[in-house]
Design a protein around this nucleic acid. Structure first.
Lengths: 292, 292
DNA sequence: AACCAGTATTGTAGCGCTACAATAACATGT
DNA sequence: ACATGTTATTGTAGCGCTACAATACTGGTT
């Protein structure tokens, strides 16, 4: 036993490469993230780490902003012979599908569900979108604008718009007040969307934003214009970010329970033996606060 | 050559463990981050990836929220026999120093500088703090509150308070309006600090916040109280986060050029052969905007 | 004392590569 | 034709571990 003490003293760390090479399995799982600027992805990693630690695994993450970077990250991870790869839904390099099919390493794709690579984990974005829309309609809002995100992130939320339009149609309301912004716009988009939507519909009385960040930007712009939220206009966010709780008014939003996605992703990865390919649904909630 | 095509077709990825074991070196560098909830750390990883890619390396990151997690992350990375380890300044597990000393793997510690493990990379936090303080004093502010962060993150900013106090003393002003908040408080801290500081000094005319997030919270609280920013009270942030540009008023802040820290960290790691242990100073800037 | 099942110990092949030695093929000069 | 230098090809040891076979010890039976 004392040999271990001395070993530790000397800074010895077992060579995982060798161990892995000999044993053929490692206790490391790899996650590829498309940027980590928002707390949702952060919570996702927290969930992954919690579940992984519980089962004696470690999580290493690689950040990839483009499909090409994602592919090369996955190759690195596969080269390291990780026990599993956790992907996030989004546009993938075409080779990636092929690679994951043949490599034999378990994969999950989170935040998407639909025709995922490997098993899918995510919450029902369509239902969530329906919930917010119904809530706004029930409030008596009639001219509701919808803002969607283009580019990579947009893919994760493909079901939002159809669900919105379906609900609007069912209520006999116009569902064409739709605006598309670039994914990277951050807070700055908020001002833009209020300008554009008001220009198109002066009597605009609600906006459904793709994230709390955009929603916060929209609230700032409404303040500048002297438009009162929620009296004259309702603003709904998405993602339950910190800022939504602190803003005046606090933001009504969809909370995606991102940590549960992480937990389920790791579980799916490590139970990949039982070929239960049915997508895992995680929970979400509509938090009704002051802004809508 | 066609064999490579077939190999790729079959989803073959070279086993890095084997290659590493044989060659003794990998082209992967490992970074350990203490959470990635703010854009500063994100930009840091962007810089690291840019520089690493340029030199033909990959970056894998592990997130560790406690010194123990950090230690175990480093062990995993060392087990993987990465080419270098990039740490972020903060409280480390005592074993970590010892481990890094003996393991022979190059290390850098970023965001700190002072008595770093391995080579240090960071900007001069003291100078930055001095700059903001001088700016506030030059504006005619006299009763300036200073908010610091306790816990892990606080260590990265240890030089802020002394620099502030030095400048205040030099200007003949009271330097004891100091408040300490917990690192994790986010936006919520903003309200708290305005309450506490005003209670201690009703004629408070400026606050130096530890982050733009806290500063934004403070601005929100001032709005609620009907305190006009910057007319009655100046609010300075730190970190140049997105929100600071979008808030009304926009936030005066310190921009740390985090991507440069990342670039320098990777350079230091890969040039570790030349034992140039002198800390690397990266740039920063005081962005004077509306709030102060 | 001889036997056997059960347990602890030691020894060794081999994981998939890379580095480099050994060898083969070739060009050049006398 | 042969020696010599130069480049291309092939072969092989070994990186640090793990899995498992081989062997050495137990203690309880007959």
């Amino acid at each position: 036993m004392t040999v271990l003490r001395v070993a530790a003293e000397l800074g010895y760390v077992p060579n995982m490469s060798a161990g892995l090479l000999a044993a053929g399995t490692s206790r490391v799982i790899g996650a590829v993230l498309p940027s980590v600027r928002n707390s949702a992805f952060y919570n996702y990693t927290v969930g992954m780490r919690r579940e992984a630690t519980k089962r004696g695994f470690e999580v290493i993450t690689m950040i990839a902003e483009t499909p090409e970077e994602e592919l090369s990250s996955v190759q690195t991870l596969l080269g390291l012979r990780v026990a599993g790869v956790a992907l996030v839904a989004g546009p993938h390099a075409p080779e990636l599908h092929h690679l994951m099919d043949r490599c034999g390493t378990p994969v999950v794709e989170s935040w998407g569900g639909e025709n995922a690579i490997g098993s899918g984990v995510g919450y029902n974005v369509g239902d969530a979108s329906r919930d917010v829309t119904r809530h706004l309609i029930a409030q008596g809002r009639r001219r509701i604008g919808f803002v969607q995100i283009s580019g990579g992130g947009g893919l994760r939320y493909a079901h939002r718009l159809p669900a919105f339009q379906q609900e609007m149609f069912r209520a006999g309301l116009a569902d064409d007040l739709v605006l598309t912004i670039r994914a990277s716009d951050g807070f700055g988009a908020g001002a833009q969307i209020i300008n554009d939507l008001v220009a198109r519909e002066p009597r605009l009385d609600a906006v459904l934003c793709p994230s709390d960040i955009v929603a916060a930007g929209a609230v700032f712009e409404c303040n500048r214009r002297g438009l009162s939220v929620p009296k004259e206009i309702a603003i709904a966010g998405w993602g339950d970010y910190d800022i939504g709780r602190q803003l005046t008014p606090t933001l009504t939003t969809i909370a995606p329970f991102a940590d549960e996605i992480g937990i389920s992703a790791v579980s799916a990865l490590l139970n990949a033996s039982d070929r239960d390919q049915s997508p895992i649904q995680t929970r979400y909630a509509l938090y009704i606060r002051e802004s809508a």
